[in-house]
């Protein structure tokens, strides 16, 4: 009996190792394909070169798009986090007429297909006559990322003991001091998680962005997407690898700051 369980568990372990390898395979494939000297992409690589990276770094079109993606991601993370946190505070802390409707309204972009939000913004901008710029992209990205912040901060606020704030006020702290020294540190995990989600979603989005970009303001993922509709060569894998490395760096920063497990809500709070 014991032995049978052991065998079953070994089979399960082997199965899981295979699944995990498959999950990581496409990312490893992009990294390895990028060092191939041949122009036609091959896997496994048929040599070693960094020339595609130099080519990518020297290409102002793609580095410009990379810069736009980066600035847009940071601006989105900052504004969606600020606006979303304030709204979550109101939604969890106060009872007012229409609170449930408002909450559903703020979370609704999560259910709507991104394509619909994209075409709606495209038509709205062209109706009103707003030209595409980093700010028109920013507005779209705030709409699709703020719901994550609202939800994550709300979860953090729900388990919050309000007596801590009352005690601080009783001991002479001002409202602002209480917020900064008591409330903010406690909801910080949710806030940072929201910011991380907002950045990741904004930095990688194509489905919404493809509808509201203009030839002059294009993010890197959209540029790669458009490039692949016409050409397919090793250069594009070098660009892809740079995005992967960038994501890995972001991951390390988040891990150092709050712990990735907590960001994704899988580890107990008081780790």
């Amino acid at each position: 009996m014991k032995r049978k369980i052991r065998v079953g568990f070994t089979v399960l372990t082997i199965y899981n190792v295979i699944i995990y390898l498959i999950i990581l395979a496409p990312i490893v494939a992009v990294l390895l394909a990028s060092i191939s000297p041949s122009e036609a992409p091959v896997f496994p690589p048929n040599g070693f070169t960094l020339k595609w990276y130099l080519y990518a770094i020297g290409n102002s079109l793609y580095m410009g798009a990379f810069g736009i993606s980066l600035v847009l991601g940071i601006l989105t993370a900052l504004s969606a986090t600020a606006l979303g946190t304030l709204s979550a505070l109101a939604l969890v802390r106060y009872r007012f007429v229409g609170r449930d409707v408002l909450q559903a309204f703020f979370l609704s972009p999560l259910i709507l297909p991104l394509v619909l939000i994209g075409v709606a913004l495209l038509q709205f901008y062209s109706l009103v006559g707003i030209r595409a710029s980093i700010f028109t992209l920013l507005v779209g990205h705030i709409i699709i990322t703020a719901p994550y912040v609202v939800r994550l901060v709300s979860v953090g606020l729900a388990g919050f003991d309000r007596n801590l704030e009352l005690a601080a006020r009783n001991l002479g702290a001002s409202a602002w001091e209480t917020f900064r020294r008591i409330t903010l540190p406690i909801i910080m995990t949710g806030v940072v998680a929201g910011a991380a989600f907002a950045f990741i979603v904004s930095f990688g989005d194509v489905t919404l962005t493809v509808f509201i970009t203009s030839p002059k303001v294009v993010t890197l993922p959209v540029r790669i997407f458009a490039y692949l509709e016409i050409r397919y060569d090793t250069f594009i894998f070098a660009l892809g690898s740079m995005m992967i490395v960038f994501a890995a760096i972001a991951m390390v920063i988040i891990e150092r700051a709050v712990g990735l497990g907590r960001v994704f809500g899988i580890e107990p709070r008081g780790r």
Partner: peptide, 23 residues
């Protein structure tokens, strides 16, 4: 293990598709 499952989510879907194209 959960982190490993989630880690590809950090990489944009365009890049992950690119990986599948070559595989």
């Amino acid at each position: 293990l959960v982190l490993l499952i989630l880690s590809p989510l950090l990489v944009t879907v365009v890049i992950r598709s690119l990986g599948w194209i070559i595989l």
